[in-house]
Design a protein around this nucleic acid. Structure first.
Lengths: 74, 74
DNA sequence: ACAGATAGTAAAAAATACTTGACATTTTGA
DNA sequence: TCAAAATGTCAAGTATTTTTTACTATCTGT
């Protein structure tokens, strides 16, 4: 009955669609460090809602197009 | 040139639309403490992306319908 | 082969989110 | 009017996110 929330993201794809934007560039535009972008892109942890919005803003897409959440019942 | 991200939410409205769900109930269903719900609802801080998804899931709406982000240039 | 740009890892410290518990206020209904 | 339920505040502690620094690996072009 416990739900598990698996959050995934499309940052890598979005970076390449956005003229092959580098992690460094995304980090600067989103106001985060490069390490943070790497960790989030790699799914090491999920960012704060604010950072999630900042990243979505860089790409000019709604937040739901950057981050997705699969809910698994167990 | 720095951007400010003002995150707001519609939790209060959504709770009342959802059969007047109490903060306590929402906290339990979202797997958070009541204090956390109070603080988020009051805009004290923005939650983690995971908790944001959990809250949206309780109401059965996409995350963008619970949280909104106004970008202000300055 | 070398230099520079990009991507990746790791660890410690700082910042922020979250929990727990205790108590105050307001609202609602018996 | 009284009690219970819902909301809210405060503070201390835990957990997680984020930054900083430093080092390694891979790829590209000269």
């Amino acid at each position: 009955m416990a739900k598990k929330f698996i959050i995934s993201n499309h940052i890598r794809k979005l970076r390449f669609f956005a003229n092959e934007m580098t992690q460094q560039e995304l980090a600067e535009k989103a106001g985060a460090s490069r390490q943070t972008i790497i960790a989030i892109e790699a799914g090491k942890y999920s960012p704060s809602l604010e950072l999630a919005f900042r990243i979505a803003d860089v790409f000019g897409v709604p937040i739901g197009e950057v981050f997705e959440c699969e809910v698994r019942e167990e």
